[in-house]
Design a protein around this nucleic acid. Sequence first.
DNA 1: GGGCTTCCGCCGACCTCCGAACAAAGTCCG
DNA 2: CGGACTTTGTTCGGAGGTCGGCGGAAGCCC
Lengths: 403, 403
Amino acid sequence: MTFSSGEERTVPGSPGDVLTLISAGSATTRSDLARVTGLARSTISQRVDALIERGLVRETESGESTGGRPPRQLRLHTADHVVAGVDLGATHCRIKLMDISGAVLTTCEDPMLIAEGPETVLTHVDARIARLLTEAGRDRGALKAIGMGVPGPVEFATGRPNNPPIMPGWNDYPVPEFFAGRYDATVLVDNDVNVMALGEQRDAFENSGYLLFVKVGTGIGCGIVTEGRLHRGAQGSAGDIGHIRVSGHDEAGCRCGNSACLEAVAGGAALARRLTDLGFPAESAGDVVALVQSGNTQALRLVREAGRLIGEVLASLVNFYNPEVIVIGGALARVHDHLLAGIRETIYRRSLPLATHHLTIVPSHTGEDAAALGAGILAIEHYLAPDNINRIVNAGESAGVSA
Amino acid sequence: MTFSSGEERTVPGSPGDVLTLISAGSATTRSDLARVTGLARSTISQRVDALIERGLVRETESGESTGGRPPRQLRLHTADHVVAGVDLGATHCRIKLMDISGAVLTTCEDPMLIAEGPETVLTHVDARIARLLTEAGRDRGALKAIGMGVPGPVEFATGRPNNPPIMPGWNDYPVPEFFAGRYDATVLVDNDVNVMALGEQRDAFENSGYLLFVKVGTGIGCGIVTEGRLHRGAQGSAGDIGHIRVSGHDEAGCRCGNSACLEAVAGGAALARRLTDLGFPAESAGDVVALVQSGNTQALRLVREAGRLIGEVLASLVNFYNPEVIVIGGALARVHDHLLAGIRETIYRRSLPLATHHLTIVPSHTGEDAAALGAGILAIEHYLAPDNINRIVNAGESAGVSA
DNA sequence: GGGCTTCCGCCGACCTCCGAACAAAGTCCG
DNA sequence: CGGACTTTGTTCGGAGGTCGGCGGAAGCCC
């Protein structure tokens, strides 16, 4: 009789799979690749040759000998393959130019109002990317993909924002088409919380199959990574936890028209308003953080209370989704000691023991850069995806290297 | 520039993939298969021959001619391949013997106490399966897989219950091993709500990628189907929504030790207790249903109120998970008119418009049979999975047909 | 320096899949 | 009623990719 065991390891075959292994660092020599994939050494050599010829891989210095001929190390050929990770917020724009190994080449950050509409904003983004390419000494053609996180729901397949509440003029705007004539690059647009979740999972929790990333800023949102892939839901609106009802706050009206929404009682904007009422002027989540850091006890109390309310909602989601890791990010996470205390307290009290037993709850370690980094990773992974690489290799066109 | 488009159709190759198409009815002749897969007719013939030789497929009568030679129809050879779908509840046992096309051959249903422990219960199950096989005139060796739903969390990979609250003696009991000497069949054990969700998705919502199945019986649980696959979470406890807190009921203590759990205010057991207090004796969810059907206005009021409370929790989950379909099942769904009214009302009031716009909320259409059918489908899909079929075909052993 | 080990390219053997040609089994039409 | 046509399914040689052995390359150990 056969037992229901875990998944069988599928034997990867194509050039794209080989590149994935090199990229992940799982195998850096031809022999390694043969061992890991189970393919014959001769087959691997053939594949690697094709990747080298297309300019995707190159040999570096020989490695350490283990008693015999030293293996030749293989690396991604990063010089001619870069991506841009774009983080568009309500009032800022951060861009990171990264090579396909994930290394950040150059960065920029400007104030910018997303409410000025897509043409204005994207023209700005285009100019910044061009400048970053120049600064990094890369050719325009080296830009292979653009990842972008925006503060609202997006139909990921088409890259069009879907009724975003704080992005006037962007509804259904075809963002990828804007870049069509400007770069020969794939453009991927997603919700900012989604790319933050992806980035955090890839950076710090690669082995965790079930991760939630909770962003606590002006509003509150959540990115969901299930078995390594983003969960976007049927309409791409999954993770919108800011308007979940919390008990005992029916007096708090929310901009969405309902009352007692999590965001209306525990979001940065709500906290700022309440602090102002208490005589401590604050306008934004950043002001709240500043008050906490200056030792204001009212601010501290409110943040901890916000943590409890967020924890109440997360306790429900822990029972439902059963995550392995919860990451807390966003502006308010800068005072994570106080925020996390409230969150942890409530989750461990209200969730099932089986679900919390191996649950890890941590602050984001990428901080302010989370969205731009995550957007870059989204772009890199798309570009290096086996299917895409196979297409490039089979197309017979040189991928970047001028002959 | 390349746009971020939907997934490319991968071209299926192996014998297992061919069988999957025949099984799904997507292609019933060799020519069809060639067109659908893109493989050459000669290759398809080769594959089909192998499947016929192994006893997995057979030719039936010729089909309609479309002006040329009439195609020979291919069907799954169901005679020598059957599975059992087992539904173990707290107080009952239902088993359906199904062939691998999904047709139910024979059924049985007995009262049974799961609290009597695994040896007693599984011995009973074994005897029932043997009798069903005899009734259906099938050989013992024809049983290829057993799917089983149990009322508690399970570590699916090993088939061991994981600290189930209402299954004393079952914790960590290796269910598949029990059947090891008795049948040459794979044994798959899962939470009952999970198999119900799977069955409903396959039966009625094949095209829906994001489905929640909510079972409202004695307790309340939820099965999650994401992109066609069950979401079990990190510890296999995902979907345990019965202990999510609902607002305004802090007086209601729950058997889990907390208060205001959904199950403690809206579960069948809780409703029965409150009806008893009101002077209408009721012990189980079934009694509650009977009272509603007899026109008892108190019972009706309580059920509708339960619907609102369940709806409150589901409203949160709709925002978080963004499902396409919510199916309501379990004993209380027999009065679904009243239950659904409350659920729908609350979800549409409290969830985001983007998430509810294309949301469908319906009662289960498989009713009491949901778990047994779902367990059978789980078993069939495992047995017909391409990897498994390839293994059978390549092993060179005849799969069931005595030579 | 010679044996040993490991790495890597080359080449014949093998396997799978393809496509063309052919056989089979029906329809259509004069 | 018979031949042309259409569609289905099989046979067979060839193309392409993978395997594994062989030998050369390049280091370590004694």
